[in-house]
Design a protein around this nucleic acid. Structure first.
Lengths: 118, 118
DNA sequence: CGATTAGTTATAGTTGATCTATAACAATCG
DNA sequence: CGATTGTTATAGATCAACTATAACTAATCG
């Protein structure tokens, strides 16, 4: 598991953290049933506030990717496995968009809106 | 062209506006060569500030989807046509993600990161 | 040319999100 | 029980988002 944070990025820290964990799930580096390191551990390791890490975890919970309970921590759900099963499709779409010279943000926004309403 | 704004949404107004126009391009409702309504017109019609609309237009410019020049307005580029050519792939990925019960935000974030680095 | 259109730049103020800092609380587990 | 871990509460600092005006410059049209 590789937790990256870029202070120079315009994206919020908790979004970066959640994105980092999401990518780990999609890549199969983090699997269903696994427990994420405790928020306090991560906060200490990355030198950010506890709440920042918890907000990232809650973002993943809202997406159905982890279950959270006090005393037990954040446990990866089966939805992470389903993300993993889409990795080839996502890579294919990304490659196609890249040859067309499309921006990451434009494509991501379209995909979001497609899944939300389309 | 359908410009939607939802005040209750957590997304910034300029992102919503840009997303709305992007969706129009991907759907073929707005085509290369076409001129977008002037920022002042849109601002008046949606009752938002001129700068908010301009920021949305600049977002589209940064993504290569429009060219902007003073006196002439924002003109849709050929990149919009390439977005259109991806619509089927995007819809297919969205449908697959939907059957798996994945959230729009999770999938969109993965696609963004994929195109950025992967 | 003169008037209009439309994006660009500048300044400033308000509101809300982000991040941090502490601390106490409640469920889980050995 | 004691340690761990998420949850909740409060508060403060910093920055993004949005608004409001106004002046400026390039393009367009009669």
């Amino acid at each position: 598991m590789l937790l990256r944070i870029d202070a120079g990025s315009d994206a919020p820290l908790y979004d970066q953290l959640a994105g980092s964990l999401r990518a780990d799930m999609a890549a199969g580096r983090v699997r269903p049933g696994e427990r994420l390191p405790s928020a306090r551990e991560v906060a200490a390791a990355l030198d950010v506030n506890l709440h920042t890490v918890l907000r990232a975890y809650q973002e993943l919970r809202d997406e159905g990717l982890v279950d959270m309970r006090r005393g037990r921590g954040a446990i990866v759900t089966s939805a992470a496995g389903e993300l993993f099963s889409l990795r080839a499709d996502i890579a294919a779409l990304g490659a196609k968009a890249r040859t067309l010279g499309l921006s990451a943000d434009a494509l991501a926004s379209l995909v979001r809106d497609e899944l939300r309403q389309g």
